[in-house]
Design a protein around this nucleic acid. Sequence first.
RNA 1: GCGCCCGUAGCUCAGUUGGAUAGAGCAGCGGAUUUCUAAUCCGCUGGUCGGGGGUUCAAGUCCCUCCGGGCGCGCCA
Length: 556
Amino acid sequence: MRPSRPLTSEVLAAALARAAVRSGLSDAPPAAEISVPHQAGHGDHSSNLALILARAAKKPPRAVAEALVAALELPPDLIEKTEIAGPGFINFTLSREALWHSVQAALTEGLAYGASGGGAAAPVQVEFVSANPTGPVNVVNARAAAVGDALARCLRARGHAVQTEFYVNDMGTQIDLLGRSLRARLEERLGAGPGTIPEGGYPGEYLADAARSFAEAEARSLLDGADDGRIARRAVEEMLGRQRRDLESYGVAFDEWFRQSALYPPGSQAVFEALETLRAAGFVAEREGAQWFLSTRFGDEEDRVLVRGNGEPTYFLADIAYHVNKRRRGFGRVIDIWGPDHHGHIPRMQAAVRALGHEEGWLEILIVQQVNLLREGTVVKMSKRAGEFVTLADLVEEVGVDAARFFFLMRRTDSHLDFDLSLAKMRTVANPVFYVQYGHARIASLVRHAGAAERGPGLLDGAEPGPMVSDAERILMKRIADFPEVVAGAADAREPHRLTGYLRELAADFHVFYERCRVVGEAPPLMRARLALAAAAGATLEAGLSLMGVSAPESM
RNA sequence: GCGCCCGUAGCUCAGUUGGAUAGAGCAGCGGAUUUCUAAUCCGCUGGUCGGGGGUUCAAGUCCCUCCGGGCGCGCCA
């Protein structure tokens, strides 16, 4: 771990807060917000602090801004110009030295560029995908995998210790049905029985494929035993193995695969302990032979069953026990990423977390919304009844890992996503992932053409920003300097999709620079400066793509 | 019926936690290349931010209401 540097916006916010106290405008340091204006002419960073303080100070915002600026003490060489604009905004323009410092940082830090400190002391857990082991990883799972993995990487870059986890629902009715479905497929394969998929079972071809993949001796042994539970357990292991392989070839590996069954006897009493904890707190009632959680006390629409009339714990109770377990493992914060079919469960889960006495905000639940696959502008139909749906493996085969992961991060997580398969395969500018990767390949080619021995910090030898005076160069440097702010924002707001927008802009800024600024053939001082700048843009593209699990090609 | 998500340019969507003149990409039209990847770049056209009310110095953003689309509402997981 390299030492993390503070963000420019954090430096400015702290300086403004001190200035507010020093100038008597505020007793305690106010939480100053710094934004990065998209409007040219509004500086590189902007603060609305004067507008916020004006009311309490009973002074015009511009007068407050002037008092703040007068009391401002900034680090040397960071800001070239501080001006008051509009109704009272304080706009900062970064110095050339500060911009060049970002170029140096990108080249020196490489894939670690973009990291910033300030992470929580306690580790953060991100749980995602958690697909039922009754079928292949589907496209919504694939979206969740892209989002969860990218978010985990952004959080790490933000300084958090992060653990990723996949929750395996290896209990319950669905697993019984999975086992009986596999039995039918084994019978079919060996000609040893009716081979009928049970009602509500899993008729997809993948189980037949699984049955065929077993050694014949094992297949016979499974069928000979009368124990359906043994087949079910074997089926779970088989499906889990397939899910894990699909996800690994997609570039997503989990730190932990947590089994629901680990919360049940004989190995554990966690499910019943969770029930007793809630009961002791007075939030459990018995009705009609079942045990109910009084979740309406915490704003849920209705109370929820924890233990059924037949004595079986519900999935919900197991989920509560699971979150008790997460808490015991010491996570200071837990982020669950759920599919669209679970969004109705958020109030009851948050109710349970509150009933257990965990602090507000300990559990964050993000919903990954559904995905519509489009081919040539029309929706690709998936038949749930026949158990046929487009899988992660199908998707990767059709468009590749890079396009899949990039496309899943082009939209907000909680928005429905139209995934245009035709566009994802295009080898043109119209395809955003292509455009960004092409930028990286072009930079790699440029550096090769310049005859440089490497694309790293060695390019800084003898390079100074002085000769670079054009807008295109400054804009590109500024974009590179923004990257750590973007990564921090993506992590803090749990919005990894910000990366795709940023990388398209960075690639666009580079392409403009490339069109307007020759590198090879210019006088050595200018050539060295531009080559370092281009390589820094390439390093930033690579670092950003890496946070999304997308490759940065050397040539295309 | 209740709950959640969504509604921004012809299309697909951003909009940095309430900021300054609402931005990209695609599509359309017109341009740029004796030179490092033209797989690129530049310019133009395109908007009652679904409608209406409210909160305030400031609303695409927050609140209320209506319209329209999606999803969810089991002692399944």
